[in-house]
Simulated scan of single mutants.
Amino acid sequence: MTKRAYNFNAGPAALPLEVLQQAQEEFVDYKGAGMSLMEMSHRSKLFEGVNDEAEQLLRELLQIPDSYSVMLLQGGASTQFAMVPLNFLQQGLVGAYVNSGSWAKKAIKEAKLIGETAIAATSEGSRFTRMPSLEEIVLPDNAAYLHLTSNETIEGTQLPFFPDTGEVPLIADMSSDIMSRPLDMSRFGMIYAGAQKNLGPSGATIVIARNDLIAGSPAALPTMFRYDTHAKSKSLYNTPPSFAVYMIGLVLKWLKGKGGLAAVEQTNRDKAALIYDAIDQSGGFYSGVADTGSRSLMNITFRLQSDELDKEFVRQSEAEGFVGLKGHRDVGGLRASAYNAVPLESCKALAEFMTEFQRKNG
């Protein structure tokens, strides 16, 4: 088999090798049907089984109560930036947002097109190198919900804890850290996440929402933009991204086989520690972008002492089989995205490369 790259892409991102191999085996003939899953009707019993299993695995791994609906939608998490206020931001209420970085700003921009918004907390004054603290969050009296981004992929920051919002529904964009750690779902009114970082290939978006919230979707909303449409039809109102749903199911089985989310979180901490240690022990040769208390386990952002050295790091790393270490075009620098499917061995290899690069260029 061709040697696998050390894949640190930010998304679409690494998938487990075992999952890819199983999908390869089943690609042409799924379960003896004489055709690929990609060729099947989404109304067939075989695909309904795939869809149901993905939902049940999500419920099991995240311990989702029956009072929540699980939806597998299209349009990416960016569509949810609009769907959230369309469904929940009624006249006379305010959408409250935590402004924590690039993705939070995009969500706020969309909400402003639909209704009144308020910034409940922001770390813009710190150039988004940290997440706002829980103490900084101030909710308006007429808040329809509080929206936050649990992990900012571009800046490399992550919320270590979630606020208690009382009667105000907490809504979280978890696109880049869903399934990376256990969650208390009862704290949330809704969470959503694009699949292409920690759950599977691009093309599907997970939405998990409390039933009482989505029951109030405005009647005037177009059918496809209503959460109750998709909840009632078990995500099969229209043709779903069937292959992406199938792949999500395989990834969820893989996560279950790894011991569930508590075990996965520990592995993620071990992986991130290897790279952060290489940064912290470099004597300033490498500098982390995120404040220590807000460091992401998923997206590790760092810089060298000059843009030229950053470019040389990328060039040499690519020659050694590393992929995706160039920082986002909006912020520059370097970024290693160590999602669930990135093996511990890849993070060890990167830490060793960083140490050797410093020895040669320090």
Score class of each variant (00 low, 15 high):
residue 3 K to C: 11
residue 17 L to G: 04
residue 25 E to N: 14
residue 35 M to K: 07
residue 43 R to H: 04
residue 48 E to S: 02
residue 49 G to A: 06
residue 50 V to D: 03
residue 51 N to E: 09
residue 55 E to P: 02
residue 62 L to Q: 00
residue 73 L to M: 01
residue 74 Q to D: 11
residue 75 G to M: 10
residue 76 G to F: 07
residue 87 N to Y: 04
residue 90 Q to M: 11
residue 95 G to N: 14
residue 96 A to K: 05
residue 110 E to H: 05
residue 115 G to F: 11
residue 116 E to A: 15
residue 122 T to P: 11
residue 123 S to A: 07
residue 128 F to D: 10
residue 136 E to N: 01
residue 137 I to H: 03
residue 138 V to Y: 00
residue 143 A to G: 11
residue 145 Y to I: 13
residue 151 N to F: 00
residue 154 I to P: 09
residue 160 P to K: 06
residue 168 V to T: 15
residue 168 V to D: 00
residue 170 L to I: 04
residue 174 M to D: 02
residue 174 M to R: 07
residue 176 S to V: 12
residue 178 I to K: 07
residue 196 Q to E: 14
residue 196 Q to I: 00
residue 198 N to L: 11
residue 201 P to Y: 03
residue 212 D to L: 05
residue 213 L to I: 08
residue 215 A to P: 10
residue 223 T to H: 06
residue 230 H to L: 04
residue 230 H to G: 02
residue 239 T to Y: 01
residue 244 A to K: 05
residue 249 G to E: 08
residue 250 L to T: 07
residue 253 K to C: 12
residue 258 K to G: 13
residue 261 L to M: 05
residue 265 E to Q: 15
residue 265 E to F: 03
residue 272 A to F: 08
residue 291 D to I: 01
residue 297 L to E: 02
residue 313 F to D: 07
residue 317 S to Y: 12
residue 334 L to V: 04
residue 337 S to I: 07
residue 337 S to P: 10
residue 346 S to Y: 12
residue 358 Q to P: 08
residue 362 G to D: 00
